[in-house]
Design a binder for these strands. Structure first.
Lengths: 204, 204
DNA sequence: TTACAATGTGAATGTACGGTCATATGAATA
DNA sequence: TATTCATATGACCGTACATTCACATTGTAA
């Protein structure tokens, strides 16, 4: 956690520091991200940085918390909390859509998350032992959908959850990387959902 | 390319260096991998390292070449060259299988490949402009299968290729990471193919 | 206005590591 | 044995950072 001094800072300055950190972590993995660059960019002295944070990881961890919160805020709360009431594939569509909305509106945050996901060591240090949260989330939805007879019982929820997570990653990749594809976002999502739905749903 | 001195080395010593490099690059991304550790582990002096290689990247690039070759060697040659003769989903199964065989028999090489795939900058410096080779490969197969009427024409080959690549990555992950899953490899592959086949094949 | 605390600062410190170089070793040749 | 060439070596150099610290500035309360 940042030190108290950080939270005492005027909002504007705090924001500048966060912006600078985002800019640096969006372009460099944790180890290669430079405190000096963040401080310069935020217009504060290097010494001040250490008045606000224990060290580089302190800031990084804090930032990941903000990022996680932000990402969660894109999920439709009602849909998640009353998920039992909605058909699985509608939930799935909502999850995909929220991911895309998040990525479109916060393009700089996406690579930060990707880089963290790629560094399992660091990921565990920050979020604890938990499995990849997104696999866990899909697995839960899938278990419930299976119980409801919505999806093909031949499919193992853990494997399917892993595959769905893989799909989401590639989707994000496609959307964030410019000029990779001429389809628009909705078309891509539709393709993926179509694929996933046919792949998972209960066969007659 | 390594210098001539490297290729003049006795086989055994060359092997030791490669082993040491694999061990280091399997556990550290390129930038964090240490020449000193590789030299120590191989039992050579740091100075010698620079007799054999231009620099760290020289060794790394060479290693990636070996790795690529090795991976390719797992693909059934006949199936690829005469791919027109085989049904798409059989080809797909073969590709998945070869990927798993490779991963099972060379578990330390997998994270090396993953880390390179995650570093697009470096990837391009090493393999040139080409898109991710695996997406390209799947796209090609899909185009051909679509022309044959084997897969659903509503699906864009580029999107599908990206999705399949995403699937392969996540599955490799599942297989290499220990204790993540109790299914055996074949069961995982079958699940994945079942999923992909239902997702892609032409609907009646 | 002085005194004290809180905050800001960037020069200095320590360390890690890639890469170089002067020197040593050893095999082959004469 | 002396000479030469290829190879081996590890101390050394330079650089890039993360982090620290002695000092400066600012705010505040008496």
């Amino acid at each position: 956690m940042p030190k108290e001094t950080f939270f005492n800072l005027p909002e504007e300055k705090r924001q500048r520091i966060i912006e600078a950190a985002i800019a640096e972590f969006a372009t460099h993995p944790f180890q290669q991200a430079r405190v000096t660059v963040i401080a310069d960019r935020a217009g504060i002295a290097k010494g001040s940085f250490y008045q606000y944070f224990e060290d580089k990881k302190d800031l990084y961890t804090y930032l990941m918390g903000l990022l996680f919160q932000k990402k969660m805020s894109y999920l439709n709360r009602d849909l998640v909390e009353n998920r039992g009431k909605y058909p699985f594939f509608q939930l799935l569509r909502e999850v995909f859509l929220s991911g895309i909305r998040f990525a479109k509106e916060n393009p700089r945050l996406v690579p930060i998350g990707m880089m963290l996901a790629n560094d399992k060591q660091l990921y565990r240090e920050i979020f604890g032992q938990h499995e990849d949260a997104s696999i866990e989330f899909f697995r839960q939805l899938l278990e419930e959908a299976r119980a409801q007879g919505e999806i093909d019982p031949a499919i193992d929820p853990k494997v399917a959850a892993t595959m769905l997570t893989g799909l989401v990653y590639s989707l994000t990749d496609l959307i964030v990387e410019d000029g990779k594809l001429d389809l628009d976002d909705m078309a891509i999502i539709d393709q993926m959902l179509y694929f996933a739905e046919n792949g998972l749903k209960k066969k007659d």
